[in-house]
């Protein structure tokens, strides 16, 4: 196949073949990181705008470095520096960016659907860097890349995603991607944050982590998002750790080759024991490194398509 999308707004609309295409392309870009000169001219002369309406350091930095390694010019705009705080609409702000010759807009936004909204209205490429509780496609792609790198393939693996699924865009993008590539997915967490309706997406829902851990090849821990949680969703951190935290005792239930993943930032001692986060099964730092390669691949592919 050949790549023909100018935007990456979600995993849901990608085919398995397209996902694999991005992962294979990422492998080529990961190689660039081993060269003397870790920079290629692929996006020379193009301007990328990191438009982060919601704060993020990790994802923004990763996109910025990816863009710079592709020789693009990078502008960072955050919620506090944008005119959105002065009442300008998202559409108007984006049109202004485009009038300033932005070729690629990387958007992080608190509203689900905001990247698609822009993609439909702009000639520029729009890359979703996380929209509300909807999707975070590059995170899922880097997670799959990391799993594939360690385990050879995705098909047939059993992956547990643990934690605050209801409000997690990382969970949704991972569910879509893992299912498309033939993995089995079990969601684990309190019934308030992992409602049964998720089973209609084609996954299994469990509220008992001890039953799930011995059966999985990958355990993906999500950040417990204190800041977004309303207190009616679970009683408190202490109870969360007791019921769902990956403690040392629970880690003994895991298969020896089970990978431990986390999209970061980690709450050490909450969703995961601190030593486990740094342990041999943890691939958390590999996820970060692979994130750069995956984002280079995505920017190269979408940014390399002729605008409409």
């Amino acid at each position: 196949m050949r790549w023909s999308r100018k935007d990456l707004v979600g995993i849901r609309e990608l085919s398995a073949e397209e996902i694999t295409f991005v992962l294979d392309t990422a492998a080529a870009f990961k190689q660039v990181g081993t060269r003397d000169v870790k920079k290629v001219p692929a996006l020379r002369g193009k301007t990328l705008v990191n438009f982060f309406v919601e704060p993020s350091t990790r994802t923004r930095t990763s996109f910025e470095l990816a863009a710079k390694r592709l020789s693009a010019d990078v502008i960072n705009i955050s919620a506090t520096t944008s005119s959105l705080t002065k009442g300008e609409t998202l559409k108007d702000t984006a049109k202004i960016l485009e009038a300033n010759h932005a070729d690629i807009i990387v958007l992080r936004h608190s509203s689900a659907g905001a990247p698609q909204f822009l993609a439909e209205r702009l000639r520029a490429s729009v890359i979703n860097a996380g929209d509300g509780a909807h999707e975070h496609p590059t995170q899922a792609l880097l997670d799959l890349y990391t799993i594939r790198e360690r385990r050879g393939s995705i098909a047939g693996l059993h992956v547990a995603i643990v934690g605050d699924i209801l409000f997690s865009r990382v969970a949704r993008s991972n569910i879509f991607a893992l299912l498309k590539l033939g993995a089995r997915v079990t969601l684990v967490g309190p019934s308030t944050l992992v409602p049964r309706v998720f089973e209609r997406l084609g996954v299994t829902v469990s509220h008992c982590i001890d039953e799930v851990l011995p059966t999985v090849d990958v355990v993906h821990l999500l950040r417990v998002q204190h800041e977004r949680q309303r207190k009616e969703y679970f009683p408190g951190i202490g109870e969360y750790i007791r019921l769902f935290g990956l403690t040392k005792a629970r880690a003994k239930l895991l298969k020896a080759d089970c990978l431990i993943m986390h999209p970061g930032p980690i709450n050490r001692g909450v969703e995961i024991d601190s030593d486990l986060a740094d342990g041999v099964q943890s691939v958390i730092l590999a996820q970060v490194t692979n994130g750069l390669a995956v984002r280079m691949a995505v920017l190269y592919l979408c940014g390399g398509i002729a605008s409409r």
Binding site: F167, R169, F198
Partner: peptide
């Protein structure tokens, strides 16, 4: 509506 689509779309 709280249901399949709200779950899928994260709305």
């Amino acid at each position: 509506h709280e249901g399949y689509w709200s779950t899928l779309l994260g709305l």
